[in-house]
Amino acid sequence: MAIRVSVQTAAFSMDAEHARLMQGGHAAGGVGAFLGVVRGGAGLRALTLEHYPGMTESMIGRIAADAQARFGLLGCTVIHRVGRLVVGEPIVLVLCLAAHRAAALDATAFVMDWLKTRAPFWKREEFEDGRTAWVDAREADDVAAARWARDGRPG
């Protein structure tokens, strides 16, 4: 089981990350994935993402390890970008490798839900008119994460 966590300013390649993940062997039947992008609207131009170096990586590593145990993953990659990202740019990539598709996709949802609520990132919005504002946490994200709580929560 290969867990790979990266917090970086650089863009990432899904193809390269998939190739790296597949080195884990031949028992895999598929990769579930989510790629989050900066959603536009209401005059938004860009987001600037800030994080807590050290804690971020350890929290994400823990979430990935929990997903591995819960869904029997063969590999899990989480790449989260920080810095300034304009509308449409990728923010986050989660890849979950499993023998079967249900486990791969459920694990992807699990990792994303916990990432939203337990990984120390913050977003500052930058609008076309020059205004900036910190994004409030969404209550809906806490609800989404809570649905996995039967067996305890990451972190």
Binding site: I91, V92, L115, R118, A119, W122, D136, A137
Partner: peptide, 10 residues
């Protein structure tokens, strides 16, 4: 000891 707003990753 770190203080911060509720997190908004992903």
């Amino acid at each position: 000891v770190a203080f911060f707003p509720p997190v908004t990753g992903g």
